[in-house]
Design a protein around this nucleic acid. Structure first.
Lengths: 217, 217
DNA sequence: TGTACATCAGTGAACGCGCGTTCACTGATGTAC
DNA sequence: TGTACATCAGTGAACGCGCGTTCACTGATGTAC
């Protein structure tokens, strides 16, 4: 049974809708003309509110940017989580015919690029602005990336250890993987004609290379 | 003996000086606040000329941007050239005690990062705007990067072939190297506290990993 | 030698525009008594 | 039940500012005759 909302709850809900609409508008404008050249007024216009109403939701554009970075982090975290559980499932009962490094690489490429294909604007923002013009945003994204790299290096170590291979420097492997993956993500996000399966295939092969090197030393 | 210049030659020289000063100003402003948020007026101001004089040198900011991309390409080409000749010298008389892949990787890391340390603004612009907001700039930089990747893959093939190792897919190796190198370049260019020797060491190790994998398969 | 004209980088005034921000206000609802 | 006050997202007018661009002009020099 649906309980009638109080006005305050309704108001809160509406507020959230408008906030999200502002974030979506910023995202779609940023995809077209770049994050750095967004203006408060253009975002408000796109979201269908008066410029002055913007301030009811964010102190300024920088705060909105940080909210977007956070959203990107959440999306990526969910993507990682899916990948990790698939990798764990595989390492418990490895397919006989597939090279472990290959399975790991393919799962990673698929998870990550699927996430990019679903949230191109958000992912482009995340990877692009890691070295972009807003210091606050750079810091936030770098911190997030560091976290992901940590987690990934742990996962790499665990995965290959389970399969009997000790990896000497998983952190370095993780960093290489992140660099290659980031490049693939940006290419996919930026190019409107890029094909997902092709991108997955390409990234997959590269990660196999990086990770088999891991196994073979 | 110095021949007295005609006024026209002198005028041409001055013109070039101002053009270069505009490019330098754009670069230093872009380093501080991002390329996308440059304005014609701020660049002219920084260069010490009236806003209207800008038009004597470039049609608009986009044209200036392309000139900067071209300059970056030239600088990088020179850097590549230095690296290639050192690599060729090594492959003719390899040091007995050093792993060839390691020598190759170290030379590459040193050349590239030295170039970044010397031209941080230019290199940041180049790598950052490959996926930035100006389509014209994106195209120009992507084309240049493709060229570098081609040349690098040829070089990788040749280097290891000379030393008796056939590499099946040098293009893929080159792409991985470029991705990892780009990430290192951006980190170095963006972070004012980064230390060059440390960055060289780190990139070097990663490239060794990528390239030994090359040799070992 | 003088005169008229061409070349060309640089300039200051002026234009209309979009920007971020402030302010006092509205109008719907809740709350205290 | 009525009344006075609080809360809060949204608003329109207004501000001063920096922007890109246009225009007609300057002033130093070269060139033709």
């Amino acid at each position: 049974m649906k309980v009638a909302m109080s006005f305050r709850d309704y108001q809160k809900e509406q507020r959230e809708k408008v906030s999200r609409s502002l974030m979506d508008s910023a995202l779609s404008l940023a995809a077209a003309q770049g994050y750095a050249s967004l203006s408060l007024r253009s975002v408000a216009r796109e979201a269908g509110i008066a410029p002055t109403s913007f301030y009811r939701h964010f102190r300024d554009m920088d705060e909105l940017g940080l909210a977007l970075a956070e959203q990107a982090e959440d999306v990526l975290r969910a993507c990682w989580k899916g990948f990790f559980s698939k990798a764990a499932a595989y390492s418990k009962s490895p397919g006989a015919s597939v090279d472990p490094a290959e399975a790991f690489a393919r799962l990673l490429a698929e998870s990550l690029l699927a996430c990019v294909a679903e949230n191109p604007g958000l992912m482009q923002l995340f990877f692009q602005e890691r070295t972009g013009s807003s210091p606050a945003m750079r810091r936030a994204i770098s911190r997030a990336m560091d976290g992901f790299t940590d987690v990934l290096s742990g996962e790499i170590f665990r995965f290959f250890a389970t399969l009997g291979t000790q990896i000497a420097d998983p952190r370095m492997h993780a960093e290489i993987v992140m660099a290659v993956a980031q490049s693939a993500c940006l290419d996919l996000a930026v190019d409107p004609d890029a094909e997902l399966p092709r991108a997955v295939e390409d990234l997959s092969r590269k990660l196999v290379h990086v990770l088999s090197a891991a196994g073979s030393r």
